[in-house]
Amino acid sequence: MSVDAPSVLVIEDEPAQREVLIYNLEAEGYGVSHAEDGDEALVVVEEAQPDLIILDWMLPGVSGIEVCRRLKAGSQTRSIPIIMLTARGEETDRVRGLETGADDYVVKPYSVNELMARVRTQLRRVRPSTVGQRIEFANIVLDAETHRVTRGETEIKLGPTEFRLLATFLEKPGRVWSREQLLDRVWGRDIYVDTRTVDVHIGRLRKALCRDGGDDPIRTVRGAGYALG
């Protein structure tokens, strides 16, 4: 898995179904974590902050529908896309799932290829740089497919770490990222890097973006971290 690959949390209590999902998601290059019941799911989401959640409706303990409701009510988790899996095919059940906040709804038994396509669709919305899309903010443009960045008419030369930092900022302009969150997203959870390293690379990114003049688009939030815009 590449450092900045999207992360997916699978919340499914049936072992066979869970393993199939994990296998296929990892084959697509995603980082995958899992939970087996609603209580565990809420803890894992808090710790892992995944980019997308695949959530089974019928779970022991806290139900899938209640997990969905709580996550969509939380300020830190409401923007995480949720694809709900269920054997319930009635229209009233689908409506209930969507009204609770689910972003998509897949009825069992489902086609794995179709589910993977729906995963890509949701990730395209929240992590456009990971699916080769062009993302913009103000006069900054990042083209993930060609790995090019421009500001106005000027092409900006960035190293791979600065490119991933900028992609992270561009995906959620205005969001304040702590140094620890940036380390997890850009360097990876399994790599030890001092938090001061983030400051060094932020400085390099700022220098590159402002090389030909213009305001510094990266905001330092004292005691919290950094944000774009």
Rank of each mutant, 00 (worst) to 15 (best):
G203E: 05
A27R: 14
G89H: 06
L170R: 01
V44D: 05
I202L: 05
L142G: 00
V107F: 08
I202M: 07
N113C: 03
L166N: 03
E155N: 03
L25N: 02
V95P: 03
T146E: 09
R151V: 12
L123W: 04
K72W: 01
V200F: 08
E19S: 12
Q49M: 08
K207L: 09
G223A: 03
K172S: 14
R134N: 09
G213F: 06
T168C: 14
K207W: 01
L209V: 02
T86H: 04
S129T: 00
G174S: 07
R88P: 00
R118S: 12
D184K: 08
I65T: 03
R204D: 01
K157S: 08
A144F: 05
P15F: 08
D51K: 00
Y110F: 15
P50R: 03
R179E: 10
H147I: 10
H201D: 04
T154M: 07
R120N: 08
E28Q: 15
D216E: 12
T86C: 15
L228P: 00
E47T: 02
R69K: 11
K157D: 09
D39Q: 15
A16Y: 15
E40Q: 14
G159C: 07
A117Q: 11
R189G: 01
G159D: 13
A5E: 06
P160G: 04
G101H: 04
R204K: 13
S7F: 01
A227N: 01
L21M: 13
T77N: 15
P15T: 14
A167H: 00
Q49I: 05
L115N: 08
D184C: 04
V3M: 12
G159A: 10
H201K: 14
D13M: 12
P160V: 06
L21R: 02
E19K: 13
K72A: 05
D13R: 09
V20A: 10
Y226C: 03
L209Y: 03
I218E: 05
R134G: 02
V141D: 01
H34T: 10
A87I: 06
N24R: 14
K207F: 04
T86Q: 06
E99Q: 15
T146F: 07
I202R: 02
D93V: 09
I202W: 00
E14F: 13
R219G: 01
D184G: 04
Y226K: 01
Q133M: 15
R125Y: 11
G101P: 00
E12R: 13
R125E: 15
S75Q: 07
V32Q: 00
I53G: 03
N24E: 12
A117M: 12
K108G: 07
K172H: 15
